[in-house]
Design a binder for these strands. Structure first.
Lengths: 199, 199
DNA sequence: CGTCGCATTGATATCGCTCAAATCCGGTGG
DNA sequence: CCACCGGATTTGAGCGATATCAATGCGACG
């Protein structure tokens, strides 16, 4: 689980260092200079912005096996803070070395771009999903987008987590799922969903 | 308005071609081979997936001055269709030439990555905003994120469009904005907003 | 002057959130 | 093997925020 991505060039591997984080611990502060891009080895890290109301808005989220804070790599200073949500370990990649590697190593540049591009795809899909009104629309959008070739969708998270992903409360998800099943729109076996074809 | 991005290398400019689209016209079909990445010169293009229910789910949206379908550049076939929502003009960049340019032209590769990365940032910010419950929270999140250094926010779109961006109905936006003004949380002059600091 | 799109306000219906309680299920320890 | 526990899952009841429907004002533009 603590493996670096296999496409990292040796220059980056050598220059990087691991940062263990306990739950709640800060990775970087707002207004700090951007000096690293991170790869999440384990756990979960979130980018937070303090809103005038005093509440913290989550801007971004990084899970195991994802880059984190790569969207700040073109800015001099962070405009948000980052803290670990769970006990985590991240790999800190120095920005200078990263830029050099992107320029020198075509294969790495391609893989890096690929990661960012796929992340963009995922986020865009989420945006459109969250824009939908109604729980059942969001559920169907998700299943339609994330289903494999056979039309099934194996969730590896509890439904209560899925609810958050969909921007719903767990109770609403349970209820709506039930209705969709009754109407034959989806079939379900534990955490294996299937969106049924038809009208 | 129909200007290509200025960082396009000449090889791409030469190899590209403009595609005018009427409202509702298809740009590419699902399962078609991925042969281009697009730059939206004018209008709006959306990526659609037909849901089993028969409805179309919007996966992605491209506006003027944005790349479109770049997230498919690592896939052999499109898994969604694309159609213009308004009369539009897009610049079609051949994928082969694009890849070559990314490999050969470091500056272009950097600018391209920059575009994708900033797009990712924008989408991530939107995701977290749409996750917020309540119209006023979303409004404040937006203003807090998009405000310039002086804390002001000049909207270049009608409020009704802003409402869609926020995942709200226009009426709700008008009303909530009114309440926020009355409470002194925001000041407003036509389409110039300002989020007031304080509790 | 008429029309059209945007902005605004009112009244009402609806949907999802909240609080609450019961059940299920996997894991743990006796 | 069984009792127990905590988290996940269900289901119920009621409330509040937002969508929806409707009507009016308003400014741009032909």
């Amino acid at each position: 689980m603590l493996k670096s991505p296999d496409f990292l060039p040796s220059t980056l591997t050598v220059a990087s260092h691991r940062v263990p984080l306990s739950a709640g611990q800060a990775l970087f502060a707002c207004n700090a200079p951007v000096e690293h891009v991170y790869w999440v080895l384990r756990g979960e890290v979130v980018a937070l912005r303090r809103m005038p109301s005093g509440r913290d808005a989550v801007l971004m989220r990084g899970h195991s096996g994802e880059f984190f804070a790569e969207s700040s790599m073109y800015m001099p200073f962070y405009d948000c803070a980052a803290v670990a949500r769970k006990p985590s370990v991240v790999l800190a990649l120095p920005l200078r070395t990263l830029r050099q590697a992107l320029a020198d190593d075509g294969h790495f540049a391609d893989m890096f771009l690929r990661n960012v591009v796929l992340g963009l795809r995922r986020q865009s899909s989420r945006v459109e999903r969250l824009r939908l009104r109604g729980a059942s629309e969001r559920i169907q959008h998700y299943l339609s987008c994330e289903a494999s070739a056979d039309g099934c969708c194996q969730l590896d998270i509890p439904l209560s987590e899925w609810a958050l992903e969909l921007g719903l409360e767990p109770e609403t998800l349970y209820r709506t799922l039930r209705v969709l099943e009754e109407n034959g729109v989806v079939t379900r076996d534990k955490q294996r969903m299937r969106l049924c074809t038809g009208t």
